[in-house]
Structures are given as C-alpha cells and as structure tokens.
Amino acid sequence: MTSRVGSAEDRFEFLQTLVTEFQDSDSQDAKEQILANLANFAYDPNNADHLRELQVHELFLDALTEENDDFVEFGMGGLCNLSMDPQCRAVLLQGGALKLVTRCLSSQREETVLSAITALMNLSEPPFGPQVTDPAVLQCMLRFSLSDSPRLRNLAAVFLQDCCSREQVQQVEQQMMGQHGAVGIPLPKS
C-alpha cells in the first residue's frame, strides 16, 4: 500500500508535467500524443483524483471542439474513461459535458461515437438520474441499433435497454415511423 501511495505523488507530478506541456506546446503532434497519454491515464481509476484536480476533464471537453478528428477521438476516449468514476461524473455534468458529448454522436469515426455512447450511459447512472431524454438522441440510438457494425449495434442496444424506459423508446419509434426526417442520415464509417 505504501508504494501505491508513494507513487501517487510522482504520478501527480508527472500528470502535471503533461498538462503543462499540453498547454505550452505549439506542436500539434506533441499535443495529440499528450492528449492520448492523458486519456489513457484516465482509464486507471487511481488517477481520477489527480486528473480532477488538474482539471483534465476541461482539457478533454476542449478537445471535442477541435477540428482535428484525432483530437476529438482522444478527448472523447478520455471522457469515456473518466466518466466511469462517480465523482468525475458529477464534475462533468456540471461542466456541461452532456451537450458536447451528444454532439460527438454525429462523428464520422466509429471509435468516437462508441466512446460518446458509453460516456452518455455513464452520465445517466443512478445518482444523477436519466440525463438523456432528448428524443433526438434516442432516435439516433435506434438508428445505431440497426448499424452493420456489431459494436455500435450492441452498444446502442444496451443504451436503449438500460438507459431509457420502454415507453420512451416506443414513442420515439412511432415518431420515426411517421416522419421521413430520420431516414438517410449517414451512420458513422468504421
């Protein structure tokens, strides 16, 4: 246990160094690498406190608004990892993550979309109640559940089964039957 605690200080320092370099660097490559680094660090729950303290979630959310698709993918991956932690979830919801993450459902990259769906599922976990009630999101999930990609299909299915009520889904299905608007919207390329 002591070694774990001891390395925690090191780790904080290292993470801080990363964040600092990300902010100071002008090189897109370096930024991209660091973003990926931080997103991977977010996978380990032991880093959650450090990352929250360093406000890395803001960094990830910023990345979602970048032009570069890699940035968006890595930022979304980081948020997906970070949102597994209940405390980070609270911070993310306060920071208005829901809207930015929802926007990523329209990404052309499957990995980004998958991360977004998982993050939305996480953000809808009990303490914060069902956050995603927007019929447009449910429509989107219904479309995903018809996708050719098994991963997207499965994840959307889990979302529809676990994060919304049966009535909600049926209601949205009715709407989709009735209108043509939803048809023809492209699914993400894999």
């Binding site: 729950p45 032991n46 959650a48 597994m84 998982t118 990609s149 499965n154 994840l155 299915a157």
Partner: peptide, 28 residues
C-alpha cells in the same frame, strides 16, 4: 475483437467496469 460480443457481453463488460471504478473510488 469486441465485435464478437453479444449485447449481454457488452452490458456485463460495462457494468463490471463501472462497479470496479466505483469501488475504487469509494476506497479512496
């Protein structure tokens, strides 16, 4: 190769992960 997962596999995977992270968080 997550594409070989069933819906149930995917669900359990996510649930396991969430509960693991939550446990760790509570421990901290």
């Amino acid at each position: 190769v997550p594409e070989y997962e069933t819906v149930e596999d995917t669900r359990l995977k996510l649930q396991d992960r969430r509960s693991y992270v939550t446990r760790m968080s509570q421990r901290r």
